Amino acid sequence: MASSSSALPSSESVLATPQSPPSRPLSRGVRVGLVLFAIGLVFIVINVIPFFFGTTDRPLWLNLACLAAPAGLVTAVVSAWRSGRAAARQAAHELAE
């Protein structure tokens, strides 16, 4: 016995999905910060692994290179904060007009 209703849901039963805001490309500062952070993480791994094998004397340049991770994190966060503030300022300016 075939029913007369169609297999497709009616337009009333389909919930509207919210539209996501348009994504902006990452600013140059955020990209630089993320690259610095990734490089710093690689140096941290290179610096820590020898400790598991008993080597404790690491060169100074390697220890200093590990500071790229926190420097990159700070750079990315500050840059994202500044670009967010600039976007909010621009949106407020557009609403005021």
Rank of each mutant, 00 (worst) to 15 (best):
L73C: 05
E97M: 09
A71C: 15
Q19F: 08
E12K: 14
H93D: 14
L64V: 10
L67K: 02
L15V: 02
A38F: 12
C66G: 10
A7R: 12
A38H: 00
A91C: 04
R58W: 03
V78L: 11
S6H: 11
G29P: 00
S20C: 01
A92P: 01
P21Y: 03
P21N: 05
G33W: 03
H93K: 15
S6N: 14
V35C: 08
L62V: 11
L95F: 05
S83M: 07
T75V: 12
F51N: 06
R58N: 14
R58H: 12
L60R: 10
W81H: 13
S3T: 14
A2G: 06
I46K: 06
A71I: 15
R31I: 07
A68Q: 09
E94K: 04
A87F: 03
S10M: 11
V45F: 09
L26E: 04
G40T: 10
A88E: 05
E94N: 08
P25D: 14
V30C: 06
L73F: 11
W81I: 14
P50W: 10
W61H: 10
A76F: 11
V74F: 09
C66P: 01
S27Y: 01
A76S: 15
T55C: 00
T75L: 15
L36Y: 00
L15F: 02
G72R: 12
A80W: 10
T55E: 06
S10C: 08
S10Y: 06
T17F: 14
E97C: 02
L73D: 04
T55L: 05
A7G: 09
F53A: 15
A68L: 15
T75Y: 01
A65C: 08
V74S: 04
S23V: 06
L26D: 13
V78M: 14
E97P: 01
R28F: 03
S27V: 12
A88H: 05
I49H: 05
F53P: 01
L26F: 11
G29I: 04
H93M: 14
L95V: 04
L60D: 11
S27Q: 12
M1R: 06
